[in-house]
Design a binder for these strands. Structure first.
Lengths: 149, 149
DNA sequence: GCGGCTTGGTTGAGCCTTCAACTAGTGACG
DNA sequence: CGTCACTAGTTGAAGGCTCAACCAAGCCGC
C-alpha cells in the first residue's frame, strides 16, 4: 500500500522543493554572472583551497564535493583548460591523479568569494531567524545522515 | 565590507547544500530508473494532471513548475515526442499554446507516482520528527517568499 | 490604422551531468 | 608469481539546462 502524502506534507514538500531550487538557481546564476563559473566548480576550488598545499587526490575531491568521479573528471578538464587547476601524477599510486589549485585559480576564487558569500547571506541567512537557522542545520544534518546511510 | 560566514553558518550552509543535493539527486535517479523521466518532467505531468481538463497554457505551466519558458519549451518537445502531452492552439490568443496531458501521459504518471511518493516519504519525512517537518515547512515558505520578492 | 513596445513561445549553441564502457594499475589469494 | 577481482580515473554519447536571439501576435498611443 502506498503511503500517500497528506495535504500538509504535500505543502511542505513542494515548498521545500521550490525553496531549494530557487536558492541554488539564484546563487548559481549570480556566480556564473560574476565569476564565470557554476557553483559546482566554485565548490571544487574551495575544497582545494582548504586542503594542505592546495592539492587533493581526485577521489577525495570527488568525495568531498559530493560528485561522481565522472563528473569531477569532466569538471577537472574544464578547470584545467581555464588554468585554475593542474593535474599531477600521484607518486604512491600510479593510477592516481592529484588536483592542484593554481595561483590563478586561487586568485579567481579570492575574487569570487566575497560576492558569493554575500549572496548566501542575503538569500538565506538574512531571511531566517537565528532559531530557524539552527533548526535548518539540525534538519540538514539529519537528512545527510539518513541519506548517506 | 564582506560579511563572511562564521563557523556555524558555514556548517549550516554546507549541510543544507549537501542535504538538498543528495535528496534531489536520489529522487531524480529513482524516478529516472523507475519511470524513465527526470523529476522536472514528472512535475510537469503532475501539474497538468491537477489542472481542469488536464490542460494548461504553456506560460502558466512554466510559472507553476518554476521553470523558464525556454526550459519548458524544450521539455514539452520531449514530452510530446514521448506521447505524454500534446500541444494545441489557444483559441483566445493566437500566440498561445495549450499543453494537454494525454491518456498515455496520465497512465505513465499514475504508474510512477506510488514509487516516487514512497521515495519522498522514505528519504524525507521518515527521517524527521513531526516538529522538524513543521519547521522545515515554515523555513521553506519564508525562503520562497524572500527569494521571489 | 499604424508605429512601437510588450508578451508568448520556440530555437540553437554551448555547457554540464549521467550512464555505461573502458584502460590501467593494485592487491590478495592460492 | 600468476591470476582474478577491485579501484582510480577517463571517455563519449545522449539528454537536460541556460542564454541570447528570434518570430509572431497582442496592445497602446496618437
Amino acid at each position: 500500500m502506498t503511503r500517500w502524502l497528506d495535504h500538509d506534507e504535500q505543502q511542505t514538500w513542494r515548498a521545500f522543493l521550490t525553496a531549494s531550487r530557487a536558492l541554488t538557481e539564484t546563487l548559481d546564476r549570480e556566480l556564473q554572472h560574476d565569476a564565470g563559473m557554476p557553483h559546482a566548480y566554485y565548490e571544487i576550488l574551495v575544497r582545494l583551497s582548504e586542503a594542505p598545499q592546495r592539492r587533493l587526490r581526485m577521489s577525495e575531491l570527488a568525495e568531498s564535493t559530493g560528485s561522481s568521479r565522472s563528473r569531477l573528471s569532466h569538471a577537472a578538464a574544464r578547470l584545467e583548460a581555464a588554468g585554475w587547476i593542474r593535474r599531477e601524477e600521484c607518486p604512491t599510486d600510479r593510477r592516481g591523479q592529484i588536483a592542484v589549485l593554481t595561483d590563478s585559480g586561487f586568485a579567481t576564487l579570492a575574487a569570487a568569494a566575497p560576492g558569493h558569500v554575500e549572496g548566501v547571506r542575503r538569500h538565506l541567512f538574512d531571511a531566517l531567524s537565528p532559531a530557524q537557522v539552527d533548526q535548518l542545520r539540525r534538519i540538514s544534518e539529519t537528512l545527510v545522515a539518513h541519506l548517506t546511510r
